[in-house]
Every structure is written in C-alpha cells, then in structure tokens.
C-alpha cells in the first residue's frame, strides 16, 4: 500500500508551496477577492486583471495558508493566465468537481491539465476546502464578491 501522504504531498505541491508563483499584490487589478477558511485560518487574496475582451491578462495572490491552499493558489494563477473569463469559470466548475471526487480526470473530458494532481484530495475531506479556497476567491472576484468564506 502506498503512503497516502505521498499522494497528497506530491513533489509539485511541495514545490509550489515553497516557491509560490505570482505571489504578490497585482497593481492595476480589475477584480480582487479575499478567501478565508475560518477552520484553519487560511487567508488569501486573489487579484485578477481582466481586459475589455474578457481575457485574464494577469493574476496573482497573497496571503497565508497551509501547503495545500498555497500550492493550489499558485497553480491556479498559472492556469488562469491568458484564459477568458468564461474559460476560467469552466475550469472552476471542473476543479470543484475534481476535489470533491465527482470528476475522474482519467475518464471524463476536462481541461484541468496539471491541476488534476489534486484528484486524490477527496480522501482527505478536511482538506478539500484548502484546495478550493483560491478558486472560490477567484470565482468570487469575477462575480464581484469581495470576500468568500469556505465555512
């Protein structure tokens, strides 16, 4: 039996945790929202710069949280850059299903790419919210919510 720890804390996740991408405040952001998980105190802000053609030109995040929430936020910023708002919303839907165990990336069509690394997280119910926090924040930002809470 493989150690489930290794499924959750894969190299990619540990690496993004250590060196998060786009970890900064975004000057000139058109959208931003805070994500807060009161259970563990994870707290981050997602910034988006959306151009008139509804393309996400730039995306960044800031805040503090566990490895899962930080790595997920970092990977999300990479995934969203250059996508249209509509594509981002589709990805949000798919990611949401993925972390809840409702989408098998091997069997069902999806655009998750590297994000499917989170496919095992539903084995850790207490951690699903960590992985989805930044996505909820981005979704909230796009839909003009200032803050979202995962509780």
């Amino acid at each position: 039996m493989s150690d489930p720890r290794a499924d959750l804390y894969q190299e990619v996740i540990l690496e993004h945790n250590k060196k998060p991408r786009n970890f900064k405040k975004l000057e000139g952001a058109t959208h931003q929202a805070e994500g807060y998980n009161p259970l563990c105190g994870d707290h981050l802000t997602v910034f988006l710069k959306v151009n008139p053609q509804r393309v996400i030109e730039d995306v960044a995040f800031q805040g503090s949280g566990c490895a899962i929430s930080k790595a997920s936020a970092s990977m999300m910023t990479v995934a969203l850059k250059g996508k249209t708002v509509q594509e981002a919303e589709e990805l949000f839907e798919q990611f949401h299903k993925l972390v809840k165990g409702d989408l098998d990336p091997e069997k069902e069509p999806n655009k998750l790419g590297r994000l499917s690394i989170f496919s095992q997280i539903w084995h850790f119910p207490a951690r699903v919210k960590c992985a989805s926090l930044s996505w909820h924040a981005a979704h909230g930002a796009i839909n003009k919510q200032q803050s979202v809470s995962t509780e």
Binding site: D3, P4, R5, L8, Y9, L39, C40, G41, D42, G65, C66, A67, I68, F124, A126, R127, C130
Partner: peptide, 20 residues
C-alpha cells in the same frame, strides 16, 4: 510546516491532535 498540514500528516500515523 503549516499546522493544518501537520494535522493531516500525523493523522496518517493514527495520531489525533488538533490544529487551528
């Protein structure tokens, strides 16, 4: 190591601690 990660990791060894 964020406490939340610590909680998950030690849980895999059957150890119940609280984190948060």
């Amino acid at each position: 190591i964020h406490p939340h990660d610590m909680g998950t990791l030690v849980d895999q060894d059957g150890i119940a601690i609280r984190t948060g």
